[in-house]
Design a protein around this nucleic acid. Sequence first.
DNA 1: AAAAAAC
Length: 477
Amino acid sequence: MAFSELGLSPEILQAVSEAGYTTPTPIQEQAIPHVQLGRDVLGCAQTGTGKTASFVLPMIDMLAAGRGRARMPRSLIIEPTRELASQIASAFEVYGKYHRLTMALLIGGESFTDQEKKLDRGVDVLIATPGRLLDLYGRGKILLQDVRILVIDEADRMLDMGFIPDVERIVGLLPKERQTLFFSATMPPEIKRLADFFLSDPKEIAVTPPASPAETVKQSLLVVGPADKREALFRLIRSEDVKNALIFCNRKRDVDLLSRSLARHGFDVAALHGDMAQARRTLTLERFKNGEIRLLAASDVAARGLDIAGLSHVFCFDVPHHAEDYVHRIGRTGRAGREGRSFMLAVPEDAKAVSAIEKLIGREIPRGRIDGLAETPLEFVPGGSRLPPRVEGRPPRKSFSSQNVPRQTTSQDIPRQAKRRPENEGQREKTSDPRREGGPTITGNPQTPRRNGDTDAAVGFGDHLPAFLARRPKHTL
DNA sequence: AAAAAAC
């Protein structure tokens, strides 16, 4: 089948062919006719299946007649992340280049005024992440009664991210009479229930991706000692023919640390995670996509859905805690029939997480090795994947500090600490690690400034507090 | 255990 048989307008066909596509993917072939007929669609499809074009193409034609009135968008697309929302906006630009559709991208981290101006001028297509959409709605900047087409994309991911209440609120603001297109990579019962609620008599379309990344991407697993991880990564990048690569870490701060370390070692690298200013996020991703940056160290904000043409390598610097994330991460490469390569670095205690991944993908990840680095076996720890962190210079203690020492609050305690906090704030930040500072900074004295919510105050030691009790749980820092 | 998303 060819695109020309789908009943799309000549303008769309022109734009599609200029983008280099001739044949629709299965989901496009199945969904487009139903979307054109105004039917609701429940699409079970992962990224990389051509899902985006399956709604963008017919929507452009359907919206071609008519004009969005001020603050009254005619269609709404909800996406879980800012990057995905931007990507959908680009798709509308590419395929809508011969139409005069107006579009607004409502995402957080960018100025309200530009977005409000666009809304005031009237938009045909509104693409948004839930938070900013509700914010603008709350400010009276959007009226949703003209929305005739709603797209909920990546529903399972929105569920994971706790967005479903927001999505339900948004849908509650839309007219009942509308067309709804609902996409999700998986259909767990909660998602199905949600779909039943949002959709009426939908056409159900399920496409299994032609081949899952686990099959198209050539994968390797390297088990190294924790201290060797960076060196292992450096060697891998140097020895592989890396055109461009995503490097995933589990934590945002590790993304920063690793990208700085790579930069120090002369690699062409940038960082991407959700704590960065939006302007830098956008610019960084754009430069990476353009090939101006070769390596991108990223959190899982980049794990799903991002379409980076011709990405040669994915490195998992950390083993993801959720096995599905592994599939999403490596799925950034090996797309559109191209060859992709992935390497995952594991430390011995990642054994459990690794076997969860192997169970999910139904195969063993081939073990690789790096010249000059010691091979380490995975280590199965009964009852847990991770050893408790050790305190230097002291044998692991039998959880004295984790005993629940009840916090005894005196009546004058709380108001005082609240009042005293600001003036000591800066100082506390610097001396927050009593081990490094060579002594306890917290005493049992209620005059000592403390943070609200502290539960680790010790009783029964008078003014002296043993250092091990002064260690604060991470979340109070 | 962490990431994402509103200011």
